[in-house]
């Protein structure tokens, strides 16, 4: 009964959404054609928002990767909020799983010797790859969020290979707090030096070089460390192994 009802509702929603979305052209959008309504002057300007980012983004932020420019520079405050949501979710997982960790201890079974050796060998390389992703976030695809996820997956490899392995919560907390402090501190420094929160106050340098784009690499490294430590904390809590 419930299945039939669910199926009927799902088909109805599919028809409505398909009829709504079939009128949006796929791939034929000319980004310069969007007209942006400026409410202050009560006029339609020719320059649309994405076209403005694509045209002026390199000049205004110094970042080669426009997605990074949007995430860290134009909408940096939004990213701060996202990182806060991530922090709250990680804290919630840790505090809920903490209640049950005393009851049941997982049966520890040793992994294969091949797996142990290989994970010992590969752990450093995976950490290095994650660090590469978030250090070069303003030049190549990637950034703090995927870099942090790669670092957390390297810790996941250690958890799978060594069932007794346990990341120190104190160190994770220190890394996460320092990263968060760096993010907020760079923002407040911009507020003092230039009058805007998260202002890009460092010199831009030459584009396509590593030390360019001002504060964007600093913030992305902080985001990478924060995301990595939080996702590691989530994996640690969900694994639920204590000795």
């Amino acid at each position: 009964m419930k299945r039939i009802l669910g199926g009927v509702i799902a088909v109805l929603i599919f028809i409505v959404l398909a009829l709504a979305f079939v009128h949006i052209p796929f791939g034929n959008i000319d980004l310069a054609e969007y007209h942006y309504y400026n409410p202050v002057d009560n006029e339609h300007t020719q320059d649309s928002v994405p076209q403005h980012y694509l045209d002026e983004g390199k000049k205004e932020t110094g970042s080669t990767n426009i997605v990074t420019a949007v995430v860290v520079d134009y909408r940096g405050f939004d990213t701060l909020g996202e990182v806060t949501v991530l922090f709250l979710a990680s804290t919630g997982v840790g505090s809920i799983m903490y209640i049950f960790e005393k009851e049941k201890r997982r049966k520890v079974r040793r992994a294969n010797a091949v797996v142990e050796t290989a994970s010992k060998l590969l752990f450093g390389f995976i950490i290095l790859f994650g660090a590469y992703i978030f250090v070069h976030g303003h030049l190549t695809p990637g950034g703090g969020f995927p870099g942090g996820a790669v670092i957390a997956s390297s810790f996941l490899l250690l958890y799978l290979a060594y069932p007794r392995f346990h990341a120190e919560h104190k160190n994770l907390n220190i890394a996460e707090s320092l990263a968060g402090l760096t993010f907020v501190g760079v923002g407040i420094l911009g507020l003092f030096l230039a009058g805007y929160f998260l202002y890009n106050f460092l010199p831009f340098g030459l584009p396509t070089y590593l030390f360019s784009a001002g504060v964007i690499p600093v913030i992305y490294v902080a985001v990478g460390v924060k995301v990595g430590s939080e996702l590691t904390g989530i994996v640690d809590a969900m694994m639920g192994v204590r000795e």
Partner: peptide
């Protein structure tokens, strides 16, 4: 490509493990 890297490492790696 940015979103592709993120989705491959999180959606197919971490979320499956969790």
């Amino acid at each position: 490509p940015d979103v592709a890297i993120t989705e491959a490492s999180i959606g197919a790696g971490l979320s499956l493990a969790i």
